[in-house]
């Protein structure tokens, strides 16, 4: 028996179009992805280049960068996400209408990149919002972003309308608002819990596996490591009053896990 696709293309050659609702929906969806005009750092320059004439994102139907999250269905997180910026990113994501997709562009958005060990950059935007496609690179070349868009399109092609993560009768977590983190004394907090503390690893894992539409929280990314958040104030108190020699000795004790 010929496959659906073979029959389909056979008929299309004769000017007859058959489709399933699913296929039609996915075709419409994937052929006009509207990204949000939203750049955070150097990667955004490459994103702009991708949208302009040389690389021409318009060939894939995604050239219409919108300045409002209400009119966009793709968020390209292009650049370094500082902790101070995360609440705004999550809020923008929440304001996008479903279906909505996220491309995490570059090392910074994916993992913190060169700033991963710093105090001010989140270690991956997927700690806060679900990411569909990751693009490695620092910065990724425009071709890589084009490839990410094509990957996203093939993911959209595989969507099943009945199981897609934002429709359906069952309560789907991803049609709810994602929790907007608040600023805490040691890092960003969700529901009063530290998410990405300064000085140790993230405590709550990412909202991963968006294809399955699941949302995981409160899981420890590296359960084999015991992590204790250091009391920075006490260390500061001790060390400022200690003499230089003691401070040198205590150097090794700064690191507490």
């Amino acid at each position: 028996m010929p496959s659906d696709d073979a029959v389909q293309s056979d008929l299309e050659q004769q000017g007859v179009f058959f489709s399933t609702l699913n296929r039609f929906y996915n075709w419409g969806r994937r052929s006009s992805v509207w990204p949000m005009a939203f750049g955070l750092a150097c990667c955004a320059i490459e994103m702009m280049a991708t949208g302009l004439s040389r690389y021409d994102l318009a060939r894939f139907g995604a050239e219409l960068f919108r300045a409002s999250p209400r009119q966009a269905d793709l968020m390209i997180v292009a650049g370094t996400v500082t902790k101070k910026m995360v609440p705004q990113v999550v809020r923008l994501y929440n304001q996008m209408p479903e279906p909505r997709y996220v491309i995490s562009m570059g090392a910074c958005a994916t993992s913190g990149g060169p700033f991963r060990d710093g105090y001010n950059v989140v270690r991956g935007i997927d700690l806060y919002i679900p990411v569909d496609v990751y693009v490695p690179g620092c910065p990724p070349r425009p071709e890589a972003l084009l490839h990410a868009l094509m990957t996203l399109q093939s993911q959209i092609d595989r969507q099943n309308l009945k199981q897609v993560r934002w429709y359906g009768k069952k309560a789907r977590p991803q049609s709810q608002d994602f929790p907007v983190p608040s600023y805490g004394p040691h890092g960003l907090e969700i529901d009063g819990k530290l998410v990405d503390p300064v000085g140790s690893l993230p405590l709550i894992s990412s909202y991963s596996s968006p294809m399955e539409g699941e949302q995981r929280r409160d899981q420890i990314e590296h359960p084999e490591l015991v992590r204790v958040f250091p009391d920075m104030e006490r260390e500061l108190r001790e060390e400022t009053s200690a003499s230089y020699a003691e401070a040198l000795e205590g150097e090794d004790q700064h690191v507490r896990r």
Partner: peptide, 26 residues
Amino acid sequence: IYMWDEFEGFPMRKDFVRQGDKYLSE
């Protein structure tokens, strides 16, 4: 001016807690 008002500590001081995965094994 850069960090949020609720933040505690002064991150550019040399004795600010060291951070990052590379120190985890120490």
